[in-house]
């Protein structure tokens, strides 16, 4: 119990004394995970809409792949990305292993199936008659897709929350492709693992509290956006 209290006290100290290293770790965590969320949001919404509105042979297989990807273990994703980005690997020429860019790529791969899956489900649960009605009213295909997406704004924001939540809290992939390098690729989760293994439990708890506050803050913003239109 004393450890938890010590951790809370230390979290406040680190936050309010503006410890440069902690601020840097926090910003990198946020930057990497938000960039990955934004990228996979664009790709995921496109993919999910396409899969939701079209019918073609092999579609069910693709959907099953997406649904499996929603539970892909970050460690496996991290290992695969690492092997691809190795100097002597297929994408070694890019020289981005152990950089934040590599972490964004890995996190994108983790959140992309989640956002695609949510989009697909929300597009499909809209009554098909609405689609027909929109077409009958003379909407172009682009206009129809846009209106359908607007209609599924609620589940889409849920998709963003699920995708962001999965990657900001993920440690396996960030550790492998980032390397937990001081001042370069250390994020909150990898720092927590390291401090724990060093026996610095209070610091680890402090960083955990910061991480949870951060996740709460982002989700508060998203929830506010999601629920705003619904309460009035």
């Amino acid at each position: 119990m004393d450890l938890i209290i010590e951790g809370i006290v230390q979290a406040f100290k680190l936050l309010f004394q503006g410890d440069a290293e902690v601020v840097r770790i926090m910003l990198l965590s946020l930057g990497v995970s938000l960039s990955a969320t934004v990228i996979s949001l664009f790709l995921g919404v496109m993919l999910g809409t396409a899969l939701g509105l079209t019918r073609f042979p092999g579609r069910r297989f693709l959907v099953s792949i997406v649904n499996t990807g929603m539970g892909a273990p970050p460690t496996v994703v991290g290992l695969i990305v690492t092997i691809f980005l190795w100097r002597n690997g297929p994408l070694g020429l890019l020289r981005i292993l152990y950089t934040p860019v590599a972490m964004v790529i890995a996190q994108c791969l983790i959140s992309l199936p989640i956002i695609t899956g949510f989009t697909l489900a929300s597009i499909q649960q809209i009554d098909r008659k609405m689609q027909l009605q929109l077409m009958a009213l003379g909407a172009s295909r682009m206009q129809m897709v846009w209106l359908l997406l607007k209609e599924s704004r609620l589940p889409l924001l849920a998709a963003v929350m699920a995708g962001f939540g999965a990657i900001i809290s993920e440690v396996g992939a960030s550790m492998m492709v980032g390397g937990n390098i001081t001042g370069q690729t250390r994020v909150l989760t990898t720092a927590i693992v390291m401090e724990t293994s060093k026996g610095e439990f209070a610091t680890a708890i402090a960083l955990s509290i910061i991480l949870m506050v951060l996740v709460y803050g982002v989700n508060l913003l998203l929830t506010w956006a999601q629920q705003r239109g619904k309460t009035s």
Partner: peptide
Amino acid sequence: LNCLVTRLLLASVLLVLVVTAVG
């Protein structure tokens, strides 16, 4: 209001990205 909310959201995301990039 919806439009406003979406813009605010987008703006805050961009802000964080810019701050991080600068950092």
